[in-house]
Amino acid sequence: MVEQQIIIAGFGGQGVLSMGQILSYAGLLEGKNVSWLPSYGPEMRGGTANCNVIISEELVGSPIVKEADAAIIMNLPSLEKFEKFVVSGGNLLINSSLISEKTSRGDVKAYEIPANDIANEIGNAKVANMVMLGAYIELTKIVAKQSIIQSVEKVLGSSKGNLIQINEEALKRGAESVKCYK
């Protein structure tokens, strides 16, 4: 059975929750079973935010991710909090633009992706999340890039044509950033 259980975490405002939604929606577009569960609480911009995403060929059991196949980590507090949830041999994607520390886990596949730097090069700091997502789907192939793009159109609305383009570029650059690890 193909299933990915993912934790996405970072500051509020980094697009952590929307990244999870875009990924879930892409799974749904491909006819997979998906769940998206956000952390909620007295949170605000600059505070921490995270979500659990499950994409599966079977019905999703518990939507709570305790043993993550992958974690996408956008800031340092999230690395410290969530690296322990990744299963041995799982993927740990670290936003190295904001995190200079290394993971303390020696048994996971760690990828350092300078997501903010890449996003700035493309010309929109806000697409750092999409750079990470591009890297993630390149590594796992859990959904096709095209589904992510369709999903972005759905979430942003098709009138934002220019934003689609920059998101597409971010996905591509993210994918390229992890090719050197193979």
């Binding site: 939604q21 879930s24 749904l28 079973n33 998906v34 769940s35 998206w36 569960l37 956000p38 909620y40 999703v60 939507p63 709570i64």
Partner: peptide, 10 residues
Amino acid sequence: DGTLGQMMEA
């Protein structure tokens, strides 16, 4: 419960 209220599914 809070989980069912907050989570997204198809």
